[in-house]
Simulated scan of single mutants.
Amino acid sequence: MDVLLYISALIVAVAFAILVIYLVRTLKSANKTLTHVASTMESLEKQINGITKETEQLLHRTNALADDIQKKSESLNPVFSSVKDLGQSFQQVNQSIQHVSNTITAKTNQQSEQIAQVVQWGQVALDFYEKLKARKKAENSEIN
């Protein structure tokens, strides 16, 4: 019976040794896997840091570009106001010429002997309008 006890102890010892060998192999494999995961995470962290820096630079450039566009847009506002004022001035000149024309027509019907003088004033007004128009056009071309 003692022999049987020794054989059982030997079988248990051999089984325990086999279990320990497989446990060591499993732990070594797990260690390699964890090492690989750690290196992958480190590489991923470096890539994310690079992407973050590039994104920050892009954001700064975008903000600078938006500020530049805003400044240029604001600087164009007076130009548009000037063009609007110029259009109003032309409209007033056109209304004045229309009024003069209407007045000339009415006066012509009333006073036929003053027709020559009115025609001369009309010509002066047209010349003035053309000169004003030419000057405004020259000013606009200098602005642009």
Rank of each mutant, 00 (worst) to 15 (best):
M1I: 07
M1T: 12
L4M: 14
L5Y: 10
L5W: 13
L5F: 10
Y6T: 12
I7R: 04
I7M: 00
I7S: 01
L10Y: 05
I11N: 00
A13L: 08
A13R: 00
V14P: 00
A15T: 07
F16S: 11
F16Q: 02
L19M: 13
V20M: 14
I21R: 03
I21F: 15
Y22A: 02
L23I: 09
V24S: 02
R25F: 08
T26V: 00
T26F: 01
T26R: 06
L27K: 08
K28C: 07
S29V: 06
S29H: 04
N31E: 12
N31L: 10
K32E: 11
K32L: 07
L34C: 08
T35V: 03
H36K: 12
H36P: 00
V37H: 02
V37L: 11
T40G: 05
E45N: 11
E45G: 14
Q47G: 09
Q47R: 15
N49W: 07
N49V: 11
T52L: 02
K53F: 01
K53W: 02
K53A: 07
K53R: 05
E54T: 03
T55W: 01
T55G: 02
E56Q: 09
E56S: 11
L59Q: 12
L59E: 06
H60F: 07
H60E: 07
R61M: 12
A64G: 08
D68K: 14
I69P: 00
I69L: 04
I69C: 00
Q70S: 15
K71D: 14
K72I: 02
S73E: 13
E74S: 09
E74G: 04
S75H: 04
S75T: 10
S75N: 10
L76H: 06
L76N: 01
N77I: 14
P78H: 00
V79T: 05
F80E: 08
S81W: 08
K84L: 06
K84Q: 14
K84T: 12
D85C: 02
Q88I: 07
Q88A: 15
F90V: 06
Q91T: 06
Q92W: 13
Q92S: 14
V93E: 02
V93T: 14
N94E: 13
N94R: 08
N94V: 13
Q95T: 15
S96M: 05
S96D: 04
I97E: 06
I97H: 09
Q98M: 14
V100C: 03
T103I: 03
I104K: 01
T105I: 05
T105E: 12
A106I: 08
A106Y: 11
K107W: 10
Q110F: 03
Q110E: 13
Q111G: 01
S112D: 15
E113K: 09
E113I: 07
Q114V: 08
I115T: 04
A116Q: 07
A116D: 08
V119T: 09
V119D: 04
G122N: 14
G122K: 02
Q123H: 08
Q123P: 01
V124Y: 11
D127W: 03
D127E: 14
E130I: 13
E130L: 14
E130H: 11
K131V: 09
K131A: 10
L132K: 11
R135D: 10
R135Q: 15
R135H: 13
K137M: 06
K137A: 13
E139N: 01
S141K: 15
I143N: 08
N144L: 09
N144S: 06
